[in-house]
């Protein structure tokens, strides 16, 4: 099991009187920073790149979009597209499609500066075979009783395959902190993975329609999700200092304002079934 999970369990186990409670604290917000949130895949539906600004952590208003920016997506096979702004801050990728092995470059030009992200579309190294479920009663490892998903898949030979597994329950994307699933072939290259249990925030009930999507990640995107995972699962007394998640957006000129976020590229394969 992952180290942070182990540490968390260990803490729960040992510290019977330890406790957490929600507190109200005021955190000073910093200056707004441009965020680029976009992902190109091989899926048929239209993909988007969102551009907006960070907001104060305690603020509840919506993110402020960054409209009227010029976004150009190109690949190393000669394709080039200027993205269309469909809504303020929302830019659609209409013509370019994701293909394995291609290197994509997204350049962003706003009033704050010019930026660029480069991302290689990695092959999908984990081919899903079956999606099954098993029922678990309430216990230390399973805080809620219900059906937990099991994925069987073939890991392709060749080290360096990394994926994110996304789950949809009845068409709704599950994206709570405990739903983040990342897998790397470091210790399982070319194995047939049989019934690997996926992490879920809340288990399923009979009749739920579950879709598992496997998204391939290159090394930098993998590290980005690992950064996010580290933030989402705080290890309490063993917590490391908070670090910002890395970003593949780079400033092209030194006068450009700060930028963060991620522009990723993934090949996606899925498997769908119903809990019986």
């Amino acid at each position: 099991m992952k180290l942070h999970q182990f540490l968390y369990l260990f803490l729960c186990f040992c510290l019977i009187t330890a406790c957490e409670d929600v507190v109200d604290i005021k955190l000073k917000k910093g200056h707004p920073v441009l965020v680029v949130d976009g992902w190109l895949t091989n899926k048929r539906e239209t993909q988007y790149v969102n551009l907006y600004y960070t907001r104060g952590i305690s603020q509840s208003k919506d993110y402020q979009p960054a409209g009227n920016a010029r976004l150009v997506l190109s690949d190393d096979a000669g394709h080039r597209e200027v993205l269309t702004e469909t809504d303020p801050g929302k830019y659609a990728i209409k013509t370019i499609k994701g293909a394995t092995g291609r290197t994509y470059k997204l350049s962003v030009e706003t009033e704050d500066g010019t930026y660029e992200a480069v991302s290689l579309m990695p092959r999908i190294g984990l081919i899903p075979d079956t999606l099954a479920f098993h029922y678990r009663e309430k216990s230390l490892v399973y805080p809620n009783p219900g059906f937990y998903p099991l994925l069987s898949a073939q890991e392709l030979e060749g080290k360096g395959d990394r994926v994110q597994i996304k789950l949809y329950k009845n068409g709704i994307y599950q994206n709570k902190a405990n739903d983040l699933n990342l897998f790397s072939d470091d210790h399982a290259d070319s194995y047939y993975i049989f019934n690997m249990e996926l992490d879920v925030d809340s288990p399923y009930v009979k009749g739920d329609r579950i879709r598992a999507e496997i998204w391939s990640l290159n090394e930098d995107a993998w590290l980005f999700w690992k950064d996010v995972e580290g933030q989402l699962h705080n290890a309490q007394i063993f917590a490391t200092p908070l670090t910002n998640s890395r970003s593949n957006l780079k400033k092209l000129t030194p006068e450009s304002g700060d930028v963060t976020g991620y522009f990723g590229t993934s090949i996606v394969r899925s498997k769908e079934t119903v809990v019986k």
Binding site: L27, V35, R55
Partner: peptide, 8 residues
């Protein structure tokens, strides 16, 4: 942190 954003 003082700020936040979101991805996916």
């Amino acid at each position: 942190p003082g700020d936040r954003f979101q991805i996916d």
